[in-house]
Amino acid sequence: MVEIYVKLIMNGRRTFEQVPENLQTAVKNQLDLLGLETTVGG
């Protein structure tokens, strides 16, 4: 699920705030690894 949310954020279809709370840490870590901020797409 983390990869799905990362791709949705990258494509502007979701914002970080829309990620379920239990996945936010993992999604944030993945975005950090990609050099992206949690505001991508928002």
Results as ranks from 00 to 15, higher is better:
Arg14Asp: 01
Leu8Ile: 01
Val2Asn: 03
Lys7Ser: 11
Gln30Ile: 04
Ile9Glu: 02
Thr38Gly: 07
Val19Arg: 06
Thr25His: 09
Val19Ile: 15
Ile4Tyr: 07
Val6Gln: 04
Gln18Leu: 04
Gly35Gln: 10
Gln30Cys: 04
Glu3Ile: 01
Pro20Glu: 04
Glu17Asp: 15
Asp32Asn: 11
Val27Arg: 12
Leu8Trp: 01
Leu33Thr: 14
Leu31Gln: 08
Pro20Val: 06
Asn11Ala: 07
Val19Glu: 08
Asp32Cys: 02
Leu31His: 05
Lys28Gln: 10
Arg14Trp: 02
Met1Ser: 11
Gly12Pro: 00
Leu34Pro: 09
Gln30Asp: 06
Thr38Lys: 11
Pro20Met: 04
Leu36Glu: 14
Ile4Phe: 03
Gly35Tyr: 11
Tyr5Arg: 04
Gly35Asn: 14
Lys7Phe: 02
Glu37Thr: 12
Ile9Leu: 05
Leu33Tyr: 11
Val19Thr: 12
Val19Lys: 10
Arg14Ala: 09
Leu23Ile: 05
Val27Ser: 07
Leu36Ser: 11
Leu31Thr: 05
Thr39Val: 13
Lys28Cys: 01
Leu36Pro: 01
Ile4Lys: 09
Met1Gln: 09
Gly35Arg: 10
Val19Gln: 10
Lys7Thr: 01
Ile9Cys: 03
Arg14Ser: 04
Thr25Gly: 08
Val6Arg: 03
Gln18Cys: 02
Leu8Gln: 10
Met1Val: 06
Thr25Lys: 15
Ala26Arg: 11
Asn22Lys: 13
Gly12Gln: 02
Val6Ala: 04
Ala26Val: 03
Asn22Pro: 00
Tyr5Glu: 09
Glu17Cys: 07
Val2Thr: 08
Glu3Trp: 08
Leu34Glu: 14
Val6Met: 06
Asn11Pro: 01
Arg13Trp: 04
Arg13Pro: 00
Thr15Lys: 12
Asp32Gln: 12
Lys7Arg: 14
Leu23Glu: 15
Lys7Leu: 13
Gly12Arg: 06
Gln30Asn: 08
Tyr5His: 10
Gly35Ile: 05
Thr15Ser: 15
Glu37Cys: 09
Arg13Leu: 07
Leu8Cys: 08
Glu17Ile: 02
Gly41Arg: 09
Glu21Val: 06
Leu36Cys: 11
Val27Lys: 12
Gln24Pro: 09
Pro20Gln: 05
Leu36Arg: 14
Gln30Leu: 09
Met10His: 01
Leu36Tyr: 15
Glu37Gly: 15
Glu21Trp: 02
Asn11Cys: 02
Phe16Arg: 04
Leu36Gly: 02
Leu8Gly: 07
Thr39Arg: 11
Glu3Gly: 03
Leu34Lys: 15
Asn22Leu: 07
Gly42Pro: 12
Met10Asp: 01
Gly42Asp: 11
Arg14Leu: 08
